[in-house]
């Protein structure tokens, strides 16, 4: 399965590295990344392909990372977006 991870928060050093480190721990391969920094607000959207590891655990780990670093991190199954926005 593929998942979409969004990260929003105050721009600091190493956000991308921290998030992709968690992805690597859970064998999630990063397929695509778009990111932008508006003034000091950091916004990133990642598309990752999950291996055999559990999505729930990845998602919990990312939430934890978000709380520790004052970021809003959301991870959702790609199908949600496909079904809502494509006919």
């Amino acid at each position: 399965m593929k998942a979409v991870i969004t990260v929003v928060g105050k721009d600091t050093v190493g956000i991308l590295a921290k998030v992709s480190a968690v992805c690597a721990d859970y064998e999630a391969n990063v397929i695509e990344v778009t990111q932008s920094v508006l003034q000091d607000l950091f916004a990133m959207i990642m598309l990752v392909e999950l291996g055999k590891k559990n999505f729930k655990e990845l998602s919990e780990q990312l939430n934890k990372l978000g709380e520790e670093n004052n970021l809003k991190i959301h991870s959702m199954h790609e199908d949600i977006f496909n079904s809502m926005h494509k006919i």
Binding site: V4, T6, L47, H74, M76, E78, I80, F81, M84, H85
Partner: peptide, 16 residues
Amino acid sequence: MLETRDILETINMIEN
């Protein structure tokens, strides 16, 4: 490919 705007719209619907 998914559009950034669509992704943010969905997340906003659930979050807020």
